[in-house]
Design a protein around this nucleic acid. Structure first.
Lengths: 107, 107
DNA sequence: TCAATCCATAGCCAACGGGGTATGGATTGT
DNA sequence: ACAATCCATACCCCGTTGGCTATGGATTGA
C-alpha cells in the first residue's frame, strides 16, 4: 500500500534507468558526461533519468563547477527489501497454517 | 543484465498487478471472480494482469470446471532478491575499498 | 571578453500500456 | 436443450513515457 514502494518499482522498471543505477552502485560516483558516454542514449535522456532516480531517492547529486556528480543511495532500496520480505512472510504464515491444519487432521 | 530481472521489475511496476500478487500472497489461492470482486477494475483487465503475472512466473493457474484458480509462486521473487543483494554487495565492496585506502593512508 | 564545455529544461513525437466494452468458448444448472 | 455463469480473447482508446533535437544558463579556458 505504501507509496514509496510504488515509486521504487516504477523507477526501476525502466532498463536504461536501472542500468544507470547499477553503474553507480558498481563504480561509485560518476559525472553525467561519464554516464552518458556508455549509456547508449543522449545526454538529455540521461539527465532526465537521473532526475527521476534522484526524485525516488535512489541517487544523490553533488555539484562541482560545471559538472554534476551522481552517486547511488543504497538505503533507498530498503522498502523494496521490506516488500519482498513481507510477501515471503505471508507465504510462510500460510505454510505454517497448513502445517497446523495437517497436524490437527492428524490427531 | 539478466532479462528475468527486467521482466520482474516491469511486471511488478503496475499497482493493480502488484495488488493482485499481494492478495494472492496474503490470502492464498483465489478464483478470477474473487479477485475481480475487490480489484477495482473489470474482469477482462484482471484476466490480462493475471496472464502477465503468469508469464513472469509469479503466479500459477489451476483450472477447475469453468473457473480458474490462481496462486502466488513466491520463488519467482528470487531474482529480485538477488539483484538487491548484488547492488548491496557492490556498495559493500566499494566501502571495503575505501576502508583499505584509509588504512593505507594511515600508515 | 569570447569560445567552449557541461548539464538541465523545454518541446515534440512515436510507442507502449492499462483501461474499457463486446464477444465467444466452456462448463454448470434447470 | 437452454439459460446462466465463469473466464479469456479481441479490439479500441487515450494517457503516460521514453526517446530525440534545440536551446540556454553556468562555468571554465584562452
Amino acid at each position: 500500500m505504501s507509496d514509496t514502494q510504488d515509486v521504487l518499482f516504477r523507477t526501476l522498471a525502466d532498463p536504461t534507468r536501472r542500468a544507470l543505477f547499477e553503474r553507480l552502485c558498481r563504480e561509485g560516483e560518476k559525472t553525467v558526461g561519464a554516464l552518458t558516454a556508455r549509456a547508449g542514449v543522449s545526454q538529455p535522456v540521461v539527465s532526465k533519468h537521473l532526475g527521476i532516480l534522484k526524485q525516488a531517492g535512489l541517487v544523490r547529486d553533488r555539484h562541482e563547477g560545471r559538472q554534476t556528480h551522481y552517486s547511488a543511495q543504497l538505503g533507498a532500496l530498503a522498502p523494496l527489501v521490506d516488500w519482498t520480505s513481507e510477501m515471503a512472510g505471508f507465504w510462510q504464515n500460510r505454510f505454517d497454517q497448513l502445517e497446523d491444519l495437517l497436524k490437527r487432521m492428524d490427531q
